[in-house]
Structure formats: C-alpha cells, structure tokens
Design a protein around this nucleic acid. Structure first.
Length: 571
RNA sequence: CGGGGCAUAGCGCAGCUUGGUAGCGCGUCUGCUUUGGGAGCAGAAGGUCGCAGGUUCGAAUCCUGCUGCCCCGACCA
C-alpha cells in the first residue's frame, strides 16, 4: 500500500479524553475515531489490524470444524421472552420498536437466535454435534463505556454456539474450542492466562476466561506459583485455615474511638495491625432481614461468594443505613457481632482468630479482646473474601499471586438452559426426544486489538505483534523528490515485496524524514527499510526492527530484507 | 443510576474572578527556501464561544434550565 493512498491521519498530541494507552495510541495513529460514547469508526489503518485478527480467528475456528454463519443484529422480542431474558437482561439491552410497534433489540449476544435456528432444522442426533460461529457487531448499553474499544457499547465479537447429544460430547467440544483459543492467542503473540471463572448471568456449569495480561486490565487474576491453578479473583476460593484458636488474652473491653470509621483509621488510632481487626458488613438476607458478615480487617468481601450463600439475597444488596441503625443502634463504622440478634456469617479466615478489635455497635466505640464463643456464639464460617497475594493455592500447590488481565475470551458449558426453555429437541438412537446440551464461546475481536496495544507499546507508539500488524514492512525514502535513484529503488522494493507476499507500506507522501519515522513508529510497523542516496552508493539499505534500538545496514535486495525480517525465502 | 469535572477553530488550551475588538500552540492551505528524527520565512483560511431562555445599553464572561462528553463506584468479550 502506498501511504499517500491510505487516508492516514496521525496526531502528535494526545486527545484529552483518552485515559489508557491503547485508546490514546489508536486515536493518535488514526486507527479509530469516536462517534459517540462507546461508539467508534474503524479507519482504514485500524481495519487492516482488525482483518488480520479476524483471519486468524476464522482459520482456527474453521480448523476445529466450526461453521461460520451470520445472524441478524436486530432480534425480535418474542425470542427473548421465550428464554426469559427479555426482562432479565435489563437496561443492558438496547430495545426498539418498528413502525408496527413490534419490539426488537439490538443483539447483545445470540443464544436465542442460534437456538431458534437449530430447532427449525435439526431433528436427529445424527445432525449433532455442530458448532456455529459468527464474527459480528454486538451492542451492549454499558452503564459506563470507557477506555475506548476496551469497553465500548458497540463492539465486534466472535461468538460460537455448539449443540450436543450429551454432556460428554459438550465437554469434548468445549476443550476443542478452548484449544483453538489457545492457538489464536499464541498466533497473535500475546501473553495471556486461562483462568477459571464465575459463570455469571449466562448460566451453566463450567467456564473459563482468557485474559491478556496488562497492568491496565480491569480484572484481577489469582495465579498459583505452581502453575497449576488460575482463576479470576471473583471465582478463586480460599482454603479454611488449619490449627487451633488461641485462648482469649484478655477481657472484652469497650474503648472510645471517636471519629474512627474505617479499618485504616482504627489501626492508626489503636496502633494495631489490620489482621487483628474484624470488619462488619450488613447485607440483606433472602428473607428480607439483614445478615451480618464479618471479615478480617485487611480482607475484602467477595460479593459473588456472598450472594451464593444460603440465606443471602441475590443479587447482593447492602443494607441501608436506616436498617442498620434499627438493628444495631449504631451506624456503619462502629458495627460488630457483640449482642446482635441477626444471623452472623464470618469469613473462615477468622475461625482461629482471637482477641480481635470489633465495632461496639455504639457510635465512636470499639471492643478489644473480642473472642468467638465467649463474646458471641460460634458463628457460621464460610468463604467470603477475595483471595490476596500470598494465599495458599486452593489446589494445595504453591501460593497465589495476583495479576491484572483484560478478558478477551470466555468459554462456557451452558447445559440445556436455552435448549430447554426454547423447546429444542432431537430424537436419539432409541427414538426418544432429547434436549441437546449447549456450549457458548465468546472472543472479543475489537477488544483484543486494544489489549495487544496495552501489552505492546513504547514511548514512540505501538509495537504490533507481527501477526496482526497493519503492514509487515515500511519503506521510507530519503530525499525522494530529489533522487530518481531513490524513487526507483523504492518502487522496485515495493513491487518485489508484494510479489513475495510481504505486506509492505511505501511512504510516498513526500514528507521530511522525521515525520515519516515518527509515523512508522506510532502506527507500529514491525520492520523498517530506509532508502537513501548514501546507502545506494554503498549498495546498502538500512534496516531497523520496531523494537530495535539501532538500525543496521543490509544488502540492497529483497532477500536481505526478508532475512533481516526473520522471513527466509519461501515465507 | 449516584458522586465529581468539562464544553471556546480539526486537535491541545488561554480568556470568564472584575461584562465592552475572540486569542495562543499544533495542524491545514499558498509561495519560496529546506530534506537522515515531528524544518524556516512570508502570507492565508478556519469559531452562531454546546443548546435554549434570562439579566444588561452590551454576555464566551453573570443567572436558570437542558444536552453532550470525561472521570470515580455496581456489569462484561
């Protein structure tokens, strides 16, 4: 491609409203432009990257025998009413009506449509298994779109749905897709982790997420030093401690702690470690009455674990201050388990704790030397907290470290949630009706582009992994308008490169060298060739890899360039 | 949806407190010079100051309402 024909529009200055580096660089490089909140146009440069990602995904999905389809983005409401999600999806779903007042949504996902598609044509177990996928635009009316393409409202997703006669076959396909995702991310060239996940609203049994590691990632991942365990922190379990509880070291004592309403403040005021304190959180039970959750002061409540407990309302609802005052006689910041008459559930990290500092249920007061059994009946202990770095791995091997990740893929075993609610059945070998098992597999196509930049950039711009770079090579002429030789050499290289299957960009825009170098680095082309009179006199070209600190001279031939690029003949 | 902030030329910003000629940098266009790391000189174009009301002789500036966007919290590929 001649860069003069690409409608390239780069900027030196960073747009003010772009927060994270991938968003900034995509805007500066002219890959995308914003239309509205969470809505972006892909410019020609961005499309080149997008198409290469899509090509890799298609190849790997095709390789496992998945079949590409394309479903409508606009979906009728009746379908969603059948599965029960017209109400359940809530405001996340963009809804609309046509001129006849018929209701539709812009699809946030396609379980209903694909299930409908299959139930119309599939009658026999002989037609299974099958796995359909599409690469398509989704719309989710996110509460807060942010970070450019990372959390856009309209985005491009590869979604796949498989159908099986039984769970064993679903499990087999699940692992096939999982391995395809591994190959996709290996080929793109990103550092990622596959982690166990909470299944969330989509429902179903088993699910794992694929996270590209990046400090800016929105998810926390718990990964075992042994390499055997990895889970989203949301879904990572903690192990009940072993050992014995120490005997009380003193009498329960009420002390004045005026103005202290946080654990940090309490620790400073009393000069105690947060591990010797307990925090009290009041949530609503499923009977509409409050339940007291008690955690060690330095631990954080895991809301998913809490709402999954018997007796706790889901979704998890914090008690409001009026309810708290009614049952405790004090406000948040001074609460504790002493003399309360509502259910108490304590995190099992506190099972063997003794002599804790807890709120006194009296504003501005705390108790010291709180002990279970003596100062409050033994509570119900449960896993309530987020894991933290250094915790023992739940599989008993090694300890956990916490990494940040960007979720780019998610594989689920759905079971019969949709096939059952939407009456999809096929006949099995014995002629009996069977409800097929389903799997679903999402991959964020536009998001992985942003994630790649988060992981691969420097001060000058993007450093694309070669597999998804917009171009393989950029050819930069020096003083092209003065030198027929330079122009001719560039044209020849450009033509030869294309013939050899190297996707080359020829910077024929007639700019001075500085801006050409800066643009090539900003848009992240992995390999650069500079053609100059000086070099041609010596029969040389100058080669520089995007991540190289220095350039080097190579022979003036495509073979030498291919060699420098790490692509020997025939590649 | 709750809390905070912003809205002035394509982009980044100043001007607003104390009302009176709309400005700077980058970019864009023209000409000349320049050409190995975002050039120099000269000239030019480009703004109903987010929208609607109000106060005033006069509003970018003060007041009211609205809209859009960004940031911090609960969702997800």
């Amino acid at each position: 491609m001649r860069l003069s024909a690409l409608a390239l529009s780069t900027t030196k200055e960073t747009p003010a409203d772009a927060e994270i580096v991938s968003h900034q660089l995509m805007l500066r490089a002219g890959m995308i432009r914003r239309l509205g909140a969470g809505l972006y146009t892909w410019a020609p440069l961005g499309m080149r990257v997008l198409r290469r990602v899509e090509a890799i995904i298609r190849e790997e999905m095709d390789n496992i025998g998945a079949l590409e389809v394309l479903m409508p983005a606009i979906q009728p409401a009746e379908l969603w009413r059948e599965s029960g999600r017209w109400e359940a999806m809530g405001p996340l779903m963009l809804r609309m009506t046509d001129r006849g007042e018929r209701e539709y949504c812009f699809g946030p996902t396609h379980e209903e449509v694909i299930t409908d598609f299959v139930r119309r044509d599939f009658r026999s177990y002989k037609q299974l298994p099958v796995n359909f996928y599409q690469i398509q635009t989704k719309f989710r009316d996110e509460i807060r779109p942010r970070f450019g393409l990372m959390r856009a409202r309209e985005f491009i997703m590869k979604d796949a749905y498989s159908f099986h006669i039984d769970e064993a076959d679903l499990n087999r396909e699940y692992h096939k897709v999982r391995s395809a995702y591994v190959r996709i991310l290996d080929r793109i060239g990103l550092d990622y982790r596959v982690v166990a996940a909470d299944s969330g609203d989509i429902g179903g049994a088993r699910s794992e997420e694929f996270h590209v590691l990046a400090g800016s990632g929105e998810d926390a991942l718990a990964v075992s030093t042994s390499g055997h365990y990895a889970a989203n922190v949301e879904a990572a379990g903690t192990i009940a401690p072993t050992g014995k509880r120490a005997a009380p070291g003193g009498e329960l004592k009420k002390i004045a702690t005026p103005g202290v309403a946080t654990i940090a403040g309490l620790c400073e005021f009393l000069s105690v470690d947060a591990t010797q304190t307990a925090k009290s959180i009041v949530v609503m039970g499923d009977d509409g009455l409050p339940v007291l959750l008690v955690l060690r002061g330095d631990h954080k409540l895991n809301e998913i674990k809490a709402e999954n407990l018997d007796g706790i309302a889901a979704p998890l609802t914090m008690a409001d201050e009026a309810t708290i005052r009614e049952h405790f006689g004090a406000g948040p910041g001074s609460l504790g388990p002493v003399n309360v008459n509502i259910p108490v559930i304590a995190d099992h990290a506190l099972t063997h704790a003794s002599d804790l500092v807890v709120g006194a249920n009296y504003d501005g007061s705390h108790f010291t030397h709180f002990n279970w059994g003596r100062d409050h009946p033994e509570p119900r202990f449960a896993d309530l907290r987020d894991v933290v770095a250094g915790d023992a791995s739940p599989d008993g091997q090694g300890t956990l470290e916490i990494l940040r990740g960007i979720e780019v893929g998610h594989v689920f075993q759905l079971g019969d949630k949709y096939s059952a609610s939407m009456n999809l059945t096929v006949l099995d070998e014995s002629g009996a009706n069977v409800t097929p098992q389903m799997g679903c597999y999402g991959f964020g196509v536009s998001r992985v582009v942003a994630a790649a930049i988060e992981q691969a950039h420097d001060d000058a711009g993007i450093c694309w992994p070669e597999a998804i770079a917009p171009f393989d090579l950029v050819i930069i002429p020096i003083k092209a308008d003065k030198s027929e030789r330079v122009r001719a050499a560039c044209e020849q290289l450009y033509a030869e490169a294309r013939t050899a299957g190297i996707d080359a960009a020829y910077d024929d825009r007639g700019l001075r060298p500085g801006p050409m170098f800066a643009d090539a680095e900003l848009i992240g082309i992995p390999h650069r060739i500079v053609v100059s009179e000086r070099g041609l006199d010596a029969g040389k070209l100058e080669y520089k890899g995007r991540r190289d600190s220095e350039s080097r001279q190579v022979e003036n031939s495509l073979a030498a360039i291919a060699e420098a690029m790490g692509r020997p003949e025939g590649q």
